[in-house]
Design a binder for these strands. Structure first.
Ligand SMILES: [Zn+2]
Ligand SMILES: [Zn+2]
Ligand SMILES: [Zn+2]
Ligand SMILES: [Zn+2]
Lengths: 149, 149
DNA sequence: CATGATAATGAAATTCATTTTCATAATAGC
DNA sequence: GCTATTATGAAAATGAATTTCATTATCATG
């Protein structure tokens, strides 16, 4: 973690930026937070140790991390974006509409078929999103837990 | 088209709704519009023949069509939703980030693999979205046309 | 064809996530 | 330390979508 934060700091400096305490707190908070976190959730968690940090800084810091390639913006159609760290390899998502649980999956075959499709259309892909919505095992089986997020 | 509009009218009546001129104009406009239309585009096109119709009615009518199963809400991450008619069979989208062109595709294998994935996780799927972003043939080859939408 | 009940409309107001503005504070490099 | 520049946070602005509400249109019935 320390290494990671130092590396990001160096990249910010190299890009003409400056270090800042607030931003460091947000970045560390982001990597400690669970995946698929909303700005609002992250802001609240950051406020526990640093109440002075404005939500705007959280917004700005996540945009920055995204630009640097460390964060990925997600949109599960809830009205507010989520972010996940981009350290783990590419994956797609199963999103439970009942309890909000998000299951990550990676399917090499699907990815390969996507490449075939784009090639067939002369399309040069830069990114994709595959989300499957529905009900997770628990919620599908009737004993639906509370919506946890 | 006439048949379709009558059928929708009947379904609205059956559901306790009433007919309305404005709504009929919006619905017809929607089915005549090109696919993947935004509310703003549809409102503008509707205004050409019926300037009095408020955008709110367009919003409401598309929500209604969605509830009845005739329209599908899309979100290509542009900040405004798009809608497409739900008459054609399921398909997914290639979206060009340069010119906005949207190519529809349907890949039985990908769909089947998605089913496998969900089953593997005990997940009961109700919907999915697969969008591949990048550059269409024209834009990838350099002679990038203007952004058309 | 009234008439009363209910649904639909449109303008304006509201909501809510996100972005922008701007005055102030912090940081880097000298 | 000094200066130039970047970062911050509060407040304001933005913009899509929704809600409110007074008015209008539509339906069923007599
Ligand atoms: Zn994928
Ligand atoms: Zn994920
Ligand atoms: Zn599909
Ligand atoms: Zn489509």
């Amino acid at each position: 973690m320390k290494r990671l934060l130092e590396r990001i700091d160096r990249e910010i400096l190299a890009a003409g930026g400056k270090r800042s305490r607030s931003r460091a707190v947000v970045i560390e908070g982001f990597f400690r937070a669970r995946e698929h976190v909303t700005i609002e959730e992250l802001t609240r968690s950051v406020h526990e140790s640093a109440p002075g940090i404005g939500a705007v800084t959280v917004y700005r810091t996540l945009k920055l991390l995204e630009r640097l390639g460390y964060a990925k913006e997600l949109d599960f159609g809830e009205g507010a974006r989520r972010y996940e760290s981009n350290l783990s390899p590419h994956h797609d998502h199963l999103v439970c509409r009942q309890c909000g649980t998000v299951i990550e999956f990676e399917d090499r075959e699907i990815e390969d078929l996507q490449d075939l499709v784009t090639r067939r259309h002369g399309f040069r892909p830069t990114a994709h999103r595959l989300e499957i919505y529905g009900f997770c095992r628990k919620c599908a089986s009737g004993n639906s837990p509370e919506r946890s997020r």
